[in-house]
Design a protein around this nucleic acid. Structure first.
Lengths: 238, 238
DNA sequence: TACGAGGCATACCGACGGTATGCCAACAAT
DNA sequence: ATTGTTGGCATACCGTCGGTATGCCTCGTA
């Protein structure tokens, strides 16, 4: 049952919302957009609330009405940027059924996303310091990392490796960390294309090695390298 | 011919330095130590200069005499912490001749270093945001990353892979990023020992896979996997 | 039409990084 | 020994920024 909405003065955000709500949502969106821009350009510390509210053509009263503070504003921006990137990556790998192929597609998509300036500055550079580790991890887990973990899971399964969730997460961490770090260097390289190609080749080699080992019947959980050193499980934690 | 030094009031830092220099060095060391402690405990933003100089029993005049500002102070602390960790890692792998064994030893040493609270907070969490990417990378290159790159180089050579420097650096980036990320999770895990063991097993598997591929004659630069599925050939289109 | 409240502006405060200035002990020159 | 000079540091102050308190004004509702 569509409620009859009289002509709103050109604010076509959400048709089912009242004028007040639309105004409010509009200023909030403006704040988020300006904040994203300024955080990406000058970093968290370099972007003052005064310049942000000035850019959004409001005052600090509006800002503190929508967000509890600068950190909360950054948090919202962080979530926006990250979820947008994750969306793109998921879009790219969707429909690819072969696990190894999917891994390579995902690798390319991830590296492309990592090169986005806003992503690099907000998510990678300032994110951990501003949000703190626990919050950062928590947000990571429900976005980009999950994608990597899913791909890693299917790849391991395709290789015939049956591993528990902890092991799968460990592998996902390894590859996720590798991709984040490597994406940085690619983004900063003089020849990004060449750098990206090197990364692809190296990752393909590592993946192929895992598959070759698996094809030889080597199983995780009772690992030894052929001719190499076996990973002896003795390490002191503290 | 030892110059006769009259009894200095218990400041045995550098015997060849004048009294003034020793006092100066002492306050600088005190500032660095207190700053390291407070940066590690409360983070860069959470540690004010007032509390730092109070802890070192000096004033801001002294601080700004030795450092150009808060960021420079953090930079010095950063270098200290990182070089100390690198020193320990080099100590551990020194004398191990087998490349694969050295890689595993280095892996353990690196993960132990990464679990140090000061290292985690100062180098990993706050470092990139405070110093900026270029400075962070620059400092990384001449410390921990170099160690990883050396080990990766010997491992690749032992596997019979002849790669150029760019490719070696790419592999080093992959492993360095993986280790940094994974070290974090180990440090935050409930059972660090189990987490560390999982990491070791996973890394050993990856390394063994690389060696197995190499033993099959697969060479970087002309990648395909013989026998098993190659990561790249025969892409099924949709 | 009146009332209530969400939405936001204005003014202000405390904390913090940074700077200017000056004192004072330590070394050198005489 | 005296004096001049300079490095080493303390004191006082300023601008900026994040955060808060308060109040107005308009939109929604009765």
């Amino acid at each position: 049952m569509s409620k009859l909405v009289p002509k709103v003065p050109s604010l076509p955000s959400v048709p089912g919302a009242s004028r007040r709500q639309q105004y409010s949502a509009s200023t909030k969106r403006a704040l988020l957009e300006v904040a994203t821009q300024l955080f990406a350009e000058h970093g968290y510390a370099g972007a003052s609330l005064d310049t942000i509210v000035a850019g959004a053509k409001v005052t600090k009263g509006a800002l503190y009405h929508h967000f509890s503070g600068k950190q909360a504003l950054f948090d919202a921006v962080f979530v926006d940027v990250q979820s947008a990137s994750t969306k793109v990556i998921r879009q790219q790998i969707k429909g690819v059924k072969d696990p190894w192929e999917q891994a390579l597609i995902g690798l390319r998509a991830f590296m492309t996303a990592v090169q986005e300036p806003a992503y690099r500055r907000i998510v990678i550079q300032d994110g951990p310091a501003v949000l703190g580790h626990e919050r950062y991890r928590e947000q990571e887990e429900r976005s980009a990392f999950t994608v990597v973990e899913e791909i890693v899971g299917t790849v391991l399964a395709a290789a015939g490796q049956v591993v528990d969730e902890a092991m799968r997460t460990t592998f996902a961490r390894i590859f996720f960390g590798a991709l984040s770090s490597v994406g940085e260097t690619v983004a900063e390289a003089e020849d990004r294309g060449a750098a990206a190609r090197r990364v692809e080749e190296a990752m393909a080699f590592i993946l192929a090695g895992m598959q070759a080992l698996s094809a030889q019947g080597v199983r995780l959980g009772a690992a030894d390298g052929p001719g190499a050193e076996a990973p002896d499980p003795s390490i002191d934690p503290d």
